[in-house]
Design a binder for these strands. Structure first.
Lengths: 339, 339
DNA sequence: CGGAGTTACTAAACCGGTTTGATCGAAACA
DNA sequence: TGTTTCGATCAAACCGGTTTAGTAACTCCG
């Protein structure tokens, strides 16, 4: 019943008739071991079913072979966000190839700093991902202080010393506005995410710029919180105005908004056009199907993990470009009603 | 710039004028250290800002101080599922209190076994959570073979030797059926999840039992895959039949189904009643607002983590009861149209 | 006053790897 | 043939904790 203890490098050494050190060299493919011996050692290791102990390696080389991700969002908001699962799946894709693990930490917002400090203090991870960047994000300085390598998703406003995956939401928002303008809309509103989030404020900014670019007057902007409730409330306020289209900062708010519009007797898209952002699984299956901006968090995750591991391995890492988001046109957008 | 190396237990020992061993005893609150000395040591540790090295502790006590979660779902399905983020948040709640970390692994379905083996082989985790139980789940035997402690969410069909958090979906489904029956519905359909998933087949079974219990004839059941696309397709098939209500196995399919019904000109709830499962954030903000079953994955996560840690600490752990799910009645259910 | 038991502590081994410094034998060179 | 050089190998130290065995001093008891 009790399985035999796992073989250690010492057992392999004994079996191959060499010393521990030689085994270590052989297994790590380092020079100074004869081809003959190397093969004998590898065979012995295979026969014994030897696997390196991460614990021992971690201690001797002062590495954790793991990277961390701290999430300070409320669980409810997380639940509705399609970003994380895909992002994490992408991260894993890279990590598992390179023998690393992902340590996840979900904390209340008030304990965010403590979360990073715990991870660093206990030496649990060799680096972290920086998500949900905020304006004047205090985490940059914190990580610098902790001496913790990091890769951010999207480039922060102030140069951070950390490489970033150059996620840029602006082309997606711009495409949505252009699409609406092209359909003939002139009074377009925006339901924004919280301004203290970089992606919240940048999408808003992109919206404003795109309106100007299209030669349209500035439209109303309502700040919401990326939640369904927030999207619904914001929409209610906008329905009083005379806008003919609303660009939402994410799909969740857009879908909630869509329902509010319908309940208020506004036909979508005949009387009101609506666009989302994220292109969630559900976007194509609401009624009318939601025009949205497709992003690729899986790819971002892969790239971010590659960059982070390279950084940890001591390389200098440049910012990582990624393809721009694409507008997916569905049934929720149409020409505005003839005035 | 280069921060001073972190102090080790040796530095603390030196500062307090005692041996390493004594420091270890003092810090772990073990007997055999005078009150005087203990305080001196604690003070020294505090002054030096000492933090135990997880790496070193892990090696010497053969523990990882981490638990694992392997997800073999497709990223798209994960993205839409509100379960994980909440569950993980609950898990973290317990883990962080007890100084443990969560190692996440997202793998393609084909590599599920490899995922567990990697985690076990490298000694990354001391135990794992078992989610998305399947009928005849091979992971039970695998984990037994690996000697890896585990806690499952929901009780498997065959006794597994692992404790389970007794999540039971049946009362929720039963409540939905009773609610519909009480409204006067007699022909009720079910859109089920994949039958090889325990929660898929159990919800279906609960549906069938509840119909019988209510004295209603068996209704049509369509098996789908928990996705929006699947829910939409299943709904299309059911609209041809003469059912007046559909009980969905999750909210995502229900919301997609709702849209299909509307697009086919069936008024909800006037002509067709619809219920979901999960009570996602969005449920209350679609039109009509979705009657759904509220579950509590955050609590499950907390309980599961407690059980797992207790199990790892060598305790014998019983199955953990949790409160039954509650039906949340909203606007998507109403009496059937007068025939 | 001597032996047993207890308390507080130290020194050293240990966990399983990596890494350094020393050693040894054979080939290369003068 | 003696010396040098080099590749292959080994023994031992090290990472930073925990744990065990051993010891010195101190108390208790007859």
């Amino acid at each position: 019943m009790t399985r035999a203890d796992r073989p250690t490098i010492r057992d392999v050494a004994r079996a191959a008739g060499v010393s521990k050190g030689t085994v270590s060299f052989a297994l790590n493919g380092r020079p100074g071991v004869s081809e003959d011996t190397r093969e004998r050692i590898l065979a012995a290791a295979r026969d014994l079913g030897w696997t390196p102990s991460t614990k021992a390696r971690a201690l001797s080389v002062s590495r954790s072979f793991a990277v961390g991700l701290v999430l300070a969002r409320e669980p409810e908001l997380l639940g509705a966000d399609p970003f994380f699962p895909s992002f994490i799946a992408g991260v894993e894709r890279t990590l598992s190839d390179r023998g690393q693990a992902l340590v996840l930490q979900v904390v209340p917002e008030s304990e965010e700093e403590a979360g990073y400090r715990r991870l660093a203090g206990a030496g649990r991870v060799d680096g972290v991902f920086l998500l949900d960047l905020r304006v004047d994000d205090p985490r940059m300085a914190l990580l610098e202080e902790l001496g913790m390598p990091a890769v951010s998703i999207a480039r922060p406003d102030v140069p951070s010393g950390f490489p970033a995956v150059l996620v840029d939401d602006r082309p997606g928002i711009a495409a949505a506005v252009e699409h609406l303008a092209g359909l003939g809309h002139r009074r377009i509103a925006h339901v924004a995410g919280p301004a203290h989030f970089l992606h919240g404020s940048r999408r808003r900014r992109a919206f404003e710029d795109a309106l100007a670019e299209a030669g349209l007057p500035a439209g109303p902007v309502v700040e919401a919180d990326f939640s369904a409730a927030g999207g619904a409330a914001a929409t209610r306020r906008l329905l009083d105005s005379d806008v003919t289209a609303i660009v939402y900062s994410n799909d969740l708010m857009a879908i909630a908004g869509l329902s509010v519009a319908v309940e208020c007797g506004r036909a979508v898209p005949a009387e009101l056009s609506v666009t989302g952002f994220d292109n969630t699984d559900l976007a194509g299956y609401v009624s009318p199907a939601l025009t949205s901006v497709r992003t690729d968090p899986y790819l971002w995750g892969r790239k971010a993990a590659e960059a982070l591991l390279d950084l940890i391995d001591g390389g200098t890492v440049d910012d990582v470009p990624v393809p721009a988001a694409q507008l997916v046109i569905r049934a929720s957008t149409a020409p505005p009603p003839p005035q």
